[in-house]
Design a protein around this nucleic acid. Structure first.
Length: 200
DNA sequence: GCTGGGATCGCCT
DNA sequence: GGCGATCCCAGCG
């Protein structure tokens, strides 16, 4: 059900892979929405110029330097938010960006929030999933074991959890660090944001 | 104090 | 495939 402290304390790259297949759940006043995590990216402290924490702690990125298992949400391009799971030891700024979800529960609420009924397009991008889940900057710095935003094991919803293979590629939408193999997604999953990227 | 750019998206051609 | 929307922050002066 709820993931252990140790799960979040693993190194960032294994955590990015282990988050695939897990559930992201949000309980809001409008209702509960849950999606399966199908695409992630790792952002590392060292040798990763694309990481927000690369140049040290600032007001914006300070939750990245907190303990693992908390959320790091930031505002981007003047209109969207992105959701990360803080990883690594306290004092080290690393995180896993959640890039896409497969909608599982509260789909009609997601459709209402996204103003579309195309299921594949509800959560297939970091900005889209924030809108569909009804999350924003107010969900920065939350403990993901306690809610209202939680990460759960898939057996919370399904008895039979499908096995899957993981595909590794370069990350989307960055210039510095573009060649690093730090994006991971579930093979053959139709809910990922973009299939194209350099396979690794 | 200003300025440039950004882990995006949807609509346009 | 290209572009505009739209705003916070980091970096520089």
């Amino acid at each position: 059900m709820i993931l252990s402290d140790a799960f979040f304390k693993s190194a960032t790259i294994p955590l990015a892979k282990n988050l695939l297949g897990k559930l992201l759940a949000h309980r809001s006043s409008d209702g509960i929405t849950i999606g399966r995590i199908v695409e992630t990216e790792a952002y590392l402290y060292q040798k990763d110029p694309a990481c927000h924490a690369h140049r040290g702690m600032t007001k914006r990125n300070k939750t990245m330097f907190g303990p693992a298992g908390y959320s790091y949400v930031y505002f981007i391009y003047g209109m969207y938010h992105c959701f990360n799971v803080v990883s690594g030891p306290e004092g080290v700024g690393e995180a896993v960006l959640i890039r896409a979800l497969e909608p599982l529960k509260g789909v009609s609420l997601m459709e209402k929030r996204r103003k579309t009924e195309k299921r594949i397009q509800l959560c297939n991008g970091p900005g889209k999933l924030m809108l569909a889940m009804g999350m924003g900057i107010e969900h920065n710095g939350l403990n993901l074991r306690r809610g209202p935003v939680k990460i759960l094991t898939p057996d919370s919803l399904e008895k039979k959890v499908p096995r899957f293979e993981i595909v590794t590629t370069t990350r989307i939408g960055i210039s510095n660090g573009r060649d690093l193999p730090l994006r991971f997604y579930i093979k053959d999953c139709e809910y990922i944001s973009k299939p194209s990227a350099v396979l690794c």
